[in-house]
Every structure is written in structure tokens, then in C-alpha cells.
Amino acid sequence: MKTRDAVSLISKIKEKTSRFILTEMATQGIHDLATSHGDIIYALYNHQRLTMAEIAHNIRKDKSTVTALVDKLVRTGYVVKDRDAADSRIVYVTLTAKGEALQPVFEEISQRMLDTFYTGITDEEKQEMLRILIKIHDNF
């Protein structure tokens, strides 16, 4: 396989996984979120309260992108923002009950995606793929 073919294939896999997630969310009645919103919500499942800078670091997006994504999550009722009492420059983001209610749905979608992703792949192949992906990641 040529390097260009591999890059194209990686791009196609990313596109297909995004489409899979969006289709699964639509099946669950979730029409007001993009996959990048899910990244923020997932980060908040792991940390109940994060600053905007922490979210940007966790999901590897710049702060301006995170601000736009969080603002939409606020408008749709999934998160709330509040300023730090001691330093008003710091903005915290927390899930609302509506956002917390998505956790079992997100977990189910995630499991279905992993099941699809790993269909026909042995445990040894999974380990090898992970080893290679870590190497590629570390190269950047």
C-alpha cells in the first residue's frame, strides 16, 4: 500500500466513523449535536467540571473552537458555564441533567462502534494496531 493510499484510507475511516456516530445519535433522537460536541460531553463525564482551557487540552482543539462548541451546548441545554469567584477570567463548564442523561446513550453508541470497528480483527491484530497507532501518534 502506498503512503498516499494509507492517508486516504485513514481519512475515509474517520469520515465513516463520524457518519456512524451521527446516524446512531439520530436513531436515539439526538439531532442537535455534532461529534465534536460529543467529545466535550465525554470529557465532562470523566471530569465533572472543567475549565475551557482544560476542555481544549482534553479534546485537542483550540480555545476559540471550544468556545463556539460550548456555547452551542449551553444554548441546547446540555451544559452550563460559570465564572470562577476568585478569577473571572476562568470559566468552568458543567453538565446539566440533560447532558448527564446522554451518558448511557453515548456508551451504547460507543460500544456499537467498537463492535463494528473490530469485526473480524483478532486480539493480536488489535494489539499490533494499537502499537502502531501509538507510534504514529508519538511521531507528531
Rank of each mutant, 00 (worst) to 15 (best):
K2A: 04
R4C: 08
R4F: 11
D5F: 04
D5V: 04
A6D: 12
S8Y: 03
S8P: 00
K12W: 12
K14Q: 07
K16V: 15
K16T: 12
S18V: 08
R19I: 10
F20K: 04
F20G: 09
L22R: 04
E24W: 07
E24D: 15
A26V: 03
T27A: 15
G29E: 11
L33P: 05
L33T: 07
L33V: 03
A34Q: 13
T35K: 10
H37R: 11
I40K: 00
I41Y: 01
H47I: 14
H47L: 15
H47Y: 15
H47W: 13
Q48D: 15
T51N: 03
M52R: 10
A53M: 13
H57A: 13
N58Q: 14
N58R: 10
I59M: 09
D62L: 08
K63S: 09
K63C: 01
K63R: 15
A68H: 14
A68Q: 09
L69F: 06
V70N: 08
D71M: 02
D71R: 02
K72M: 14
L73H: 06
G77S: 08
G77T: 05
V79F: 02
V79I: 03
K81D: 05
D82E: 08
D82N: 11
D87N: 14
D87I: 08
R89W: 07
I90W: 05
V93I: 04
V93M: 02
L95P: 00
L95I: 04
L95S: 01
K98V: 02
K98I: 00
A101S: 06
L102A: 06
L102R: 05
L102P: 04
P104Q: 00
P104I: 00
V105S: 05
F106Q: 12
F106E: 11
F106Y: 07
Q111D: 14
R112E: 01
L114F: 08
D115L: 10
T116S: 15
F117L: 06
D123R: 11
D123Q: 15
D123G: 10
E125A: 09
E125C: 04
K126P: 00
K126S: 08
Q127I: 13
L130Q: 10
I136Y: 02
I136F: 02
I136T: 13
H137I: 12
F140T: 11
